[in-house]
Computed example of a mutant assay.
Amino acid sequence: MQLKISIMGIDGYKEGVTIERVLLLSMGFGTGHNAAAKALKIHFEQLPGVKAEAVDLLELIPNTFHPLLQSGYLGMLNKFPSFYHYLYDWTHQSRVVRYVSSELIEKMGWSIRKKLTTVFSEVEPTRIVSTHPFGLLMCPSGWEDVPTVGVLTDYELHPIWLARAPKVLCVPKCLLRQNQLERIQWRTGLELCETGLPIRREFYESVSMEEARLQLGLDLKRPVVLIMGGGTGLGPMEHLVKELSPLKHIQFIVLTGNNRSLYERLENRYACPHIRIEGFRDDIPLWMSAADLLVTKPGGVTISEAIAKRLPMFLFEAFPGQEQANQEYLIHHRVAVATRPSTIRVQIRKFFSPDFKREKIRDRFQPLMAPDAARQIVSETFKAKVPFMQTL
């Protein structure tokens, strides 16, 4: 199945080469895995001699079960976060539970694997890139002959990635110490690469704060605080806006995403000169360029975008598991703090006080930034070799 191709780095190919076919696997729990796959697909398709196909494994589940599975996942996070925490923690700490979980996922994925087998026969991939650890567990037999690359979309290396380790695993910057990287590589045989997380390239485009505010019709002199709850407007958004509304010297921009009911409630109750309510926007890079501070849930994509813009963060209601790990990563690197409605007003007053060193926070983002993440992942994908299966 592996095709012969001659590659001159990733900036150019020799004429007459055989096409490389890259299959990108994701799983649409949340938005991060699919967003990373889409960002990579754009970069792959810019190269001559390369075709890329992105597949959300959830879309392969029968229509009657897909919405139930998606809503069940979100419902568990919202209503039973402690239960999700136990599941996540057990698979993180217990090798036995991880093994049982990976075997269970493989067996329960029969409906996905059946359709994925058809996808494999149609695409005939020469490379597999997965942005979700379940992607490799779901692959049909024969995938061992294809070089595989895993891409983290959160700021934690969950051991489930090692249940069926890819040839190469791309991780965020400054996530692991050098001795940790070496130990994992020695124990598993996989190659760990600190590429950073792939996001839309617009977030690394330089736009001055003044220019962004002019384009968005914001006051150039007053501070700007951006409040986001993800694509679905999750979290105590109304409570946060209520607590912040007395701070009239600050411009608050509240993005409610696709949550129309939240938008209408906030618009009816809090819309005033210093509070601007917005629904879904596709120009988030511009809003982040205009802001002094971001108040958000610590989703992997959102915080990666804020890192690219060197935008300090206040983080609220991190879900157990990935979001909690994301929050700990940012706090460890001193570019964010945890907040809640009862403390946010005091924290924001302190943040904008004359003696607070806000520029120092922006400087701390530098080692975390990954402007070439997608390009590096593409490069590592083509460097990956067919796994060598050794027998005794």
Rank of each mutant, 00 (worst) to 15 (best):
G109I: 12
E210M: 11
T302V: 01
R98A: 02
P387M: 14
R334V: 09
R21H: 15
R183D: 08
F388Y: 06
I277R: 03
F80H: 13
R213Q: 15
S94Y: 07
G150Q: 09
Q93M: 08
V295F: 01
K38M: 08
M76K: 06
R334C: 11
M138T: 03
M8N: 12
S130I: 06
K242C: 02
T232Q: 14
R310H: 06
F352V: 07
S101H: 01
V207S: 03
E278M: 04
A290Q: 10
R201K: 13
K14H: 14
A318S: 15
S102C: 11
V254H: 04
L116N: 08
M389N: 08
Q2D: 05
S71C: 00
E144D: 10
V55G: 04
H158K: 14
R187S: 05
F365A: 12
R200C: 02
T153N: 03
K79T: 14
G300M: 03
A37C: 03
I361H: 06
D283K: 00
M228F: 02
R183I: 00
Y73S: 06
R95E: 07
K309Q: 11
V241L: 09
P371C: 03
G142M: 04
P67A: 04
R127P: 01
L392I: 09
M108E: 04
K360G: 05
V301E: 00
F365C: 11
I19Y: 05
S208F: 15
I160G: 08
S82A: 13
G72E: 07
R260A: 06
I275V: 12
L216F: 03
E45A: 11
P140Y: 10
T117N: 12
I199L: 02
G32P: 01
G109P: 11
F319V: 10
H332R: 12
N258L: 14
P367V: 14
P246N: 07
R187L: 08
E264I: 06
K221I: 02
I112W: 13
C193Y: 02
G28R: 10
E205G: 05
R21F: 05
E144F: 03
F365W: 06
L136K: 10
F388L: 14
G299N: 06
C139M: 15
L68H: 13
L214Q: 15
T126D: 04
I284Q: 00
P285G: 03
F316V: 13
E20F: 00
I105E: 08
L330E: 12
A52M: 07
S141H: 12
L23F: 03
S71P: 00
G189A: 13
C193E: 04
Y13K: 15
